Simulated assay, not measured.
Amino acid sequence: MKKIDVTEAIFASKHAQGLTWEAIADAVGMSDVWTTSACLGMNSCPEDVAEKLVSFLNLPEGAKSVLMEYPTKTWQETIPQDPLIYRLYEIVGVYGPTLKEVIQEKFGDGIMSAIDFSMKVEKEENPKGDRVILTLNGKFLPYASW
């Protein structure tokens, strides 16, 4: 069984049971963003979380060990075609240099960790159109001199 097989089984179970990512995350005691990422194969699950996912979603034998495998985090290097993903790509393209300047001005020469990191997606209702609120929370990692 490969990661793609487990991901497909997760989507099938999610659809068949009418579940949301939030409901799955609540069942395993993790955030909805992290749980979704793990289900898509981009994060490895601790054993207890993998067990809970397998049980809650009635996943096939072998899924637990696959969920626990360390992922190779790769993605298409071409410009994404999906409109939502493209907009995020566009935001980083347009505002990436600005964010780099502002972060380094406030913190110094370094980067924001994507390892010691959390992310939240929230909805804000607004009469002019509902708003998407993305919170990216990463530890600052200064570059070392030696």
Rank of each mutant, 00 (worst) to 15 (best):
F140C: 09
Y86M: 06
K14I: 01
I24N: 06
M42T: 07
K128P: 00
M112H: 00
W75H: 13
F140P: 06
Y95T: 00
A16T: 12
P127A: 13
Y95H: 11
Y86I: 03
K3M: 11
E105A: 14
A50Q: 05
G108T: 02
E22P: 00
W21R: 05
I10R: 02
I133W: 05
V132I: 14
T72E: 11
R131T: 02
G62V: 09
S44P: 08
R87S: 10
V49C: 14
P127I: 08
L67P: 10
S113P: 10
N58S: 15
E77C: 12
M1P: 06
E122R: 09
P60Y: 13
D26Q: 15
D130M: 08
S44D: 14
L53V: 00
G110C: 03
L57M: 03
T135L: 04
A27Y: 13
V94S: 07
S145M: 07
V6L: 10
A144L: 05
A144G: 01
E77R: 14
L88G: 07
D32Q: 13
V33E: 01
S118L: 00
E124K: 14
G129F: 02
I10H: 00
D116L: 08
M30E: 13
I103V: 12
P80W: 14
I91G: 00
V94Y: 11
M119I: 01
T7D: 03
P83N: 04
W75T: 14
Y95S: 03
G138H: 08
Y70G: 04
E8F: 01
P83T: 01
D109K: 15
L141H: 08
I85Q: 07
G129K: 09
P80K: 12
T20D: 08
D48M: 09
V54D: 05
Q81P: 00
C39S: 12
D130Y: 08
D109I: 03
V121Y: 03
V28D: 04
P97T: 06
P127F: 08
A38V: 05
V28E: 03
W34D: 01
L19E: 06
Y95L: 03
P97N: 02
T74H: 07
